[in-house]
Simulated assay, not measured.
Amino acid sequence: MHAVTADDHRPAGPSPAGLPAGGPVAVLANPTAGRGRHRGLLPDLLDRLSTAGRPVRLLSATSADEAEAACHAAVAEGASALIAVGGDGTIHRAIQSVAGTAVPFGPVPAGTGNDFAAETGFPSAPRAAADVIAAALRQGHSRPVDLARMTGADGTVRWYGAVLAAGFDAIVNERANRMRWPRGPRRYDLAILAELARLRPRRYTLTLDGERLEVDAVLVAVGNGASYGGGMRICPAADPTDGLLDVVVGGRFDRRTLIRVKPRIYAGTHVTHPLVHTYRARTVTITADDITTYADGERSLPLPMTLTATPQALHLLH
C-alpha cells in the first residue's frame, strides 16, 4: 500500500471537547485502495474532515511498512485522532498505532474489502463516512469497540479488527503472494486452483480458554468481527463489542465439499454444515505446522500464536 505526501490541510481552529488538545488529526490515505477508484476523492474527504475545526495532516509513506511507521510517529507526536482512508489493509496498518490508547480512530472505507468499517457501522460511501467522523470530532465523541491482540511465539504483538484466517484462505494468500505471474486477480484465482489440487486437512491444536482441542481441519478462522474478504461472513455470530472471539473450524473437507460450501460463507450459512464447528472464547491459542496467518487480509504472524479478545481497545469516531 502507499500513502500520499504530507501536508497540513487547514489551520488550527478551536479544540472540540473531549479530544486531546493541541495535536492535528492525522490522515493515512492509500490511493491504490480499491484499485484506485476513489483516488480523486481525497481532497473532498480532507475538506469534510476539516469542518471539525482541527488541523488535518496527511501522512507520507510509499509502502505499507512506512505507512504503519508514519502512524506510530504521528501518535507519538501527539495527534488528537487518526483517520485511515482505504480498505481493511490500510485500516489494519493504522490501528497498530492506536490500539490500547485513548487516541480515537476513524475508518473511511475506500478499498476492495471494507469489512471492519461495515461491521462497526460506518457508511459504505467514503464521503458519508468522512461526514460521520467529522461530526464525531466536532462533538468530541467516540465509542469503544474490541480488538483482537495477537502474540506470536517470539513475543511479537499485533492487533486486528475483523478476522484472522489460519486455514485454506491463508494458505491461498501465501501462495498468491509468492507468485510473480500473472498480475491482478487472476493470480489469486490460480493460487486457489493450485491449493485445491493439493488440499488436505491439517492437524491443529486449539486451546480455548484453557480447554485443549485437537482437530483435523481445512478452514480455521478467528473473528473479532463477522466478515472478511469483502463481505464473506466466515464468523457470522461475531460481535466486536462482546469481549469474545468467535472461532470457526471447517473439518475434513474434500475438494468437492469445500467448493460446494465456500459460496455459503457470504451468507454465513456454512456454519450449519456438519463438518463446521463454532466456538467462543476470550483467549485462543492456535498451533499448526507451516501456516502463516492473514489478519484483516494482511500477511501476519506464523503459527503458533495466542489471540486475546481485548475489550474497548479502540475508540471509534462514530
Score class of each variant (00 low, 15 high):
residue 51 T to I: 10
residue 60 S to I: 00
residue 51 T to G: 13
residue 63 S to P: 09
residue 54 R to K: 15
residue 70 A to M: 14
residue 53 G to P: 06
residue 60 S to W: 13
residue 83 I to E: 03
residue 111 G to L: 06
residue 117 A to I: 06
residue 127 R to Q: 14
residue 97 S to N: 02
residue 106 G to R: 03
residue 95 I to G: 06
residue 126 P to K: 11
residue 79 A to F: 00
residue 71 C to D: 11
residue 95 I to M: 10
residue 90 T to I: 09
residue 96 Q to A: 13
residue 115 D to E: 02
residue 112 T to M: 01
residue 75 V to H: 05
residue 99 A to K: 09
residue 109 P to L: 05
residue 82 L to R: 08
residue 130 A to P: 00
residue 71 C to Q: 13
residue 110 A to R: 05
residue 102 A to D: 13
residue 92 H to F: 04
residue 49 L to D: 11
residue 45 L to N: 00
residue 78 G to H: 08
residue 112 T to S: 15
residue 57 R to F: 07
residue 57 R to H: 11
residue 119 E to K: 00
residue 100 G to T: 05
residue 128 A to H: 11
residue 52 A to Y: 03
residue 125 A to F: 03
residue 122 F to R: 12
residue 52 A to D: 11
residue 120 T to F: 01
residue 117 A to C: 15
residue 120 T to A: 14
residue 96 Q to V: 10
residue 56 V to C: 12
residue 130 A to G: 04
residue 94 A to D: 07
residue 59 L to I: 01
residue 96 Q to K: 12
residue 101 T to N: 05
residue 72 H to T: 14
residue 83 I to Y: 04
residue 63 S to I: 14
residue 67 A to N: 10
residue 129 A to E: 06
residue 102 A to Y: 00
residue 105 F to Y: 15
residue 105 F to L: 09
residue 127 R to L: 14
residue 47 D to M: 01
residue 123 P to A: 03
residue 81 A to W: 01
residue 110 A to F: 02
residue 45 L to T: 14
residue 73 A to G: 09
residue 96 Q to E: 14
residue 117 A to T: 07
residue 53 G to T: 14
residue 85 V to N: 01
residue 95 I to H: 09
residue 101 T to E: 00
residue 58 L to E: 00
residue 115 D to Y: 13
residue 62 T to S: 15
residue 75 V to R: 15
residue 45 L to H: 07
residue 61 A to T: 07
residue 69 A to N: 11
residue 69 A to F: 08
residue 130 A to Y: 09
residue 54 R to L: 15
residue 46 L to H: 04
residue 75 V to M: 14
residue 83 I to W: 08
residue 114 N to I: 06
residue 96 Q to I: 14
residue 46 L to K: 05
residue 120 T to H: 05
residue 111 G to D: 07
residue 102 A to W: 01
residue 60 S to Y: 07
residue 45 L to Q: 08
residue 116 F to L: 08
residue 95 I to Q: 03
residue 81 A to T: 11
residue 93 R to V: 00
residue 110 A to T: 00
residue 129 A to F: 06
residue 101 T to I: 03
residue 47 D to I: 01
residue 117 A to Y: 12
residue 105 F to G: 03
residue 101 T to R: 10
residue 77 E to L: 15
residue 79 A to S: 10
residue 119 E to W: 00
residue 79 A to P: 00
residue 72 H to G: 05
residue 121 G to C: 09
residue 71 C to W: 03
residue 112 T to P: 06
residue 123 P to S: 02
residue 73 A to K: 02
residue 131 D to C: 01
residue 88 D to P: 13
residue 61 A to K: 11
residue 88 D to H: 12
